[in-house]
């Protein structure tokens, strides 16, 4: 659990059943972690992808999402994915859908996940139920985990970093009792290319966010040379962000080279900004 790598892109999967997850485990080369955990957890070698098998139901989905967050040290630029099978009155057996509205019996208010822009996949309204439903007539999509996953994930990360995808496995024409483990695996396999495509968007999103919030290049180097208080560190970070846009690393190092204290480093950097005449033709 300790010594986790700080990775540029960061994906966390929450999936109810091993059969739903298998194709993801194989494609992203995720291996079980070497520790005993409450829920089975898998990760890839780079530690960019982590996956938890949560089991069926809202309680499991909520608990495992929070558990994976803590266990894998997920960041605020981590993308969270829930994928699995669902019943439907509307879509075709085997088709993959994005979810952009979630309702439950328990909560009066619905929730509204974002979906990736310009998605070619169709979207549907998900109803998360605590019991299997055989009357499909009222709902577009039915599952047993989605709402709880979204409620917890949206406390951990902005909703633009959360994605729910459902593959239709049962409906008025496809009896829920006929779902088998191998049918589930096949449904997921048949949609793998579409899933990978969606995930590449979330990998990119996470990486871009990382680039934006990552510390400026010289921050750690400067901090190791002078002693900065917490407030000074914050000012240093902001000044460096601004200066690195128009001044290269070498020049910055040169102007602070003779500073004796952290205060004088900040003063020198401040003066650099104060004297900057923005050259708008460059931007």
């Amino acid at each position: 659990m300790n010594n986790l790598k700080k990775t540029k892109n960061s994906i966390r999967w929450v999936i109810a059943l091993k059969e739903e997850a298998q194709v993801i485990l194989d494609y992203y080369k995720l291996k079980p972690i070497n520790e005993k955990t409450i829920y089975p957890i898998y990760k890839n070698e780079e530690e960019t992808h982590w996956l938890i098998i949560c089991g069926i139901g809202r309680n499991n989905a909520a608990a495992s999402t929070a558990y994976l967050y803590a266990y894998s040290n997920a960041s605020n630029y981590t993308s969270w994915i829930n994928i699995g099978i669902a019943g439907s009155c509307k879509g075709n057996y085997g088709d993959l859908y994005l979810v952009d509205k979630i309702s439950t019996y328990q909560k009066r208010k619905s929730t509204y996940p974002s979906t990736l822009p310009k998605a070619t996949l169709p979207k549907m309204h998900l109803f998360t139920s605590d019991i299997p439903i055989s009357d499909y007539s009222t709902y577009e999509l039915i599952d047993m985990e989605g709402s709880a996953f979204f409620d917890i994930a949206s406390k951990l990360t902005p909703k633009e970093f959360i994605c729910l995808m459902k593959v239709i496995s049962d409906g008025p024409e496809d009896n829920i009792k006929e779902i088998t483990k191998s049918k589930i695996s096949n449904l997921m396999k048949e949609n793998l290319l579409k899933i990978i495509d969606v995930i590449s968007y979330y990998e990119r999103l996470s990486e871009e966010e990382f680039q934006i919030i990552d510390k400026p290049k010289l921050f750690n180097k400067i901090k190791s040379k002078w002693h900065f208080s917490a407030t000074q560190s914050y000012r240093l970070e902001n000044l460096l962000r601004r200066i690195e846009i128009f001044c290269n690393k070498k020049d910055i190092e040169k102007i602070i080279k003779n500073c004796e204290t952290s205060n004088s480093v900040i003063n020198v950097l401040n003066t650099k900004i104060k004297n900057n005449l923005v050259n708008w033709s460059k931007f």
């Binding site: 934006i212 962000r241 601004r242 200066i243 846009i245 128009f246 401040n270 900004i273 104060k274 004297n275 900057n276 923005v278 708008w280 460059k282 931007f283």
Partner: peptide
């Protein structure tokens, strides 16, 4: 938007 040119202006 920490990388925007506007913030390289002499603002204080």
């Amino acid at each position: 938007y920490p990388n925007e040119p506007l913030f390289t202006s002499p603002l204080s």
